[in-house]
Design a binder for these strands. Structure first.
Length: 280
DNA sequence: AGTGCGACCCGAACGC
DNA sequence: TGCGTTCGGGTCGCAC
């Protein structure tokens, strides 16, 4: 699932392919369900004639900065894919939602098996006031995302620490894969309530979040289901996962068999020996 | 205000 | 083999 490292990799890859500064000449629609605040007609007239100047990330949202102070905000949810390509990606054709066509004959195509992704369009930086972007808390890679910050933000929440770290209004960009990896490295049980965690454990969460997420970006994200950052490339971080998807396998630290439980409905992997639950 | 949970969606995985 | 059922994932919105 695209989380912070996957979204960042997709952006890096689009910019590397020099998507910027080509003029948009049209849009082909195959399904229109992903358009959230425009009709297809409005969407195409909004984009036509504009250029993508830059691409940024806010949490798991992708912000396309367009000419004439326009912005297109995309969220991939679980299965969304953005490919900059000269031809449509054949095996994925049945999941093709739309293609934005450029004057160099290339296209930015959106594929989504689940049709869960979202496209919003805004002018004059109004995306910053939109309800989806306003909710996004500090980025875990930000220097200001410290143990102290996480502690202050979490301590009044009476939910499992895993659920808290997945809450995008607490800290943004972390999803179900990386939260398991971060908590394992911190030796914190995913069901632990924030009030039972010490300040130094919050410091550890802040530190390991940066470490894991940066390392995952370095390896171009994690492919456990279908994530690809372009039609021919999957991520590489799956080979570095320590607990996520490892149920039944030995813990890389103590050889105890990794368990899988549900936390707030999410599949959760952890080592019951390394990650002891404190309090209830 | 904080919390819990169903809805969204449908291919893949699973069970019989 | 082939059918039906369940699962999962991020986020929203509603009920308590």
């Amino acid at each position: 699932m695209p989380e912070l490292p996957e979204v960042q990799t997709i952006i890096n890859n689009l910019l590397k392919q020099k998507i910027a500064n080509n003029k948009i000449i049209g849009v082909e629609f195959y399904k229109t369900k992903v358009l959230k605040n425009s009709t297809p007609k409005e969407f195409v007239s909004f984009l036509k004639g504009e250029k993508i100047l830059d691409i940024e990330r806010i949490g798991k949202y992708i912000i396309f900065k367009l000419s004439n102070k326009k912005q297109m905000v995309v969220h991939l949810r679980m299965e969304g894919k953005l490919f900059y390509e000269s031809n449509l990606t054949k095996p994925d054709l049945r999941f093709l939602m739309l293609s934005i066509i450029f004057d160099n004959k290339h296209r930015l195509s959106y594929y989504d098996m689940r049709m869960f992704g979202t496209f919003h369009i805004y002018k004059d930086d109004k995306y910053l006031d939109s309800k989806e972007i306003k909710k996004v808390a500090i980025d875990p890679l930000n220097k200001l995302c410290t143990g102290k910050y996480l502690e202050n933000k979490s301590k009044k929440i009476n939910r499992a620490i895993k659920t808290v770290l997945l809450d995008q209004t607490v800290v943004s960009g972390i999803g179900n894969i990386y939260v398991d990896e971060i908590l394992f490295r911190c030796k914190i049980h995913p069901l632990t309530k924030p009030k039972y965690l010490k300040s130094q454990q919050y410091d550890l969460i802040a530190k390991n979040a940066k470490l894991v997420l940066k390392d995952a970006i370095k390896h171009k994200g994690t492919t456990v289901a279908s994530y690809k950052f372009d039609p021919n490339h999957t991520g590489g971080y799956q080979s570095r996962l320590l607990v996520h998807t490892k149920a039944g396998k030995p813990c890389p630290v103590c050889k105890t068999i990794i368990k899988k439980i549900k936390v707030n409905g999410r599949g959760t992997y952890f080592c019951s020996k390394c990650q002891k639950q404190v309090g209830k």
